[in-house]
Amino acid sequence: MIRINVEKKLNAYKGQQVLQINRTFAGGGITKIYGPSGSGKTTLLKLIASLTDPDQGEIIVNGLPWFDSSRKINLSPQKRNTGFVFQNYALFPNMTVIEHLQYATKDTEWINRLLHLGKLDTLATHKPDHLSGGQQQRLAILRALAIKPKVLLMDEPFSALDSKMKMELIGELKLVLAELGVTALIVSHNQQELELFEGEVMDFEGIGE
């Protein structure tokens, strides 16, 4: 379970705004988070992964404090073991498909399984600039799964996939998430995109005045 109760000031176009989040996400399940652009969905994921810090509050994951401003606890991203799928994929231009996965894990069997899952077996030696948008997006998902995370944070993870590929990938992905017991938060601005996932639905509006 993820319990998050934080506040963060953001510098925005309209001046300084305050992002306030007070939510609980079920453990071992999938939460689909919808919200308009600029509502703070990506920031929510970054707060959980420690890619940005709250000004105050606490983030408790499976009973462990990851962030607690009153007790000055703030685990680094390296210690949180969160898989993160970036909206812009954030693939490493110098690494091939297989090198991305080898950078994340030494488990060859797991790497082979992930390559199969993402249907990238035949493209293992290709670098990102030789992959299509959909292939790049699948690689970003596989890389996040490579560390066998306990929490998986996905920011618009299926936007570049065609409907057939999306259906196949989501089917396989659901099995892997269940097997790993991952708590997954999936952010999207498009409700239809995530309808293949069963899970809690959350309309997100974190920005207040």
Binding site: L51, Q78, T82, F84, F86, R143
Partner: peptide, 15 residues
């Protein structure tokens, strides 16, 4: 370089 490259590496546990 996009900051997300380093961020992606950190989430993979890299120093």
């Amino acid at each position: 370089l996009p900051s997300s490259l380093a961020e992606a590496s950190y989430t993979l546990g890299k120093s």
